[in-house]
């Protein structure tokens, strides 16, 4: 597979490490009332779609950036690659 890095261009997937669902960006608030439930869902519950899937890849043998890759789990087609940092900020994560 080839991942088209937003800054570096196409790179072989061998340079990357796969983590999983990009929902892992959405780490719950530790002080929320239902924090235990929320962390349980965050840690254990995943969708397993046959189709478009947003997932985290780490460019370990590259620039060390975490990427959010939108990949079709059936065809392996990759339709979008973003810096996870940008995605995290867009989802409201900050400090």
């Amino acid at each position: 597979m080839i991942i088209n890095h937003p800054l570096l261009g196409p790179r072989d997937a061998a340079e990357f490490v796969y983590l999983g669902d990009a929902a892992l960006i959405d780490r719950p608030d530790w002080q929320a009332a239902e924090a235990a439930e929320a962390f349980h869902a965050y840690g254990y519950l995943r969708d397993n779609p046959a189709g478009a899937h947003q997932e985290l890849w780490y460019h370990e043998q590259g620039d060390r950036s975490w990427l959010v890759v939108t990949r079709d789990t059936v065809s392996h087609e990759i339709t979008q690659v973003e810096l996870a940092r940008d995605v995290a900020r867009a989802r409201g994560r900050s400090r």
Partner: peptide, 23 residues
């Protein structure tokens, strides 16, 4: 050593992207 670095980068980029931290 390798996986801790990876996790720290995950925390830095994905969880708290606006902390001024460099690894």
């Amino acid at each position: 050593a390798v996986t801790v670095f990876r996790r720290l980068e995950f925390a830095r980029q994905c969880l708290w992207p606006d902390l001024d931290v460099h690894l």
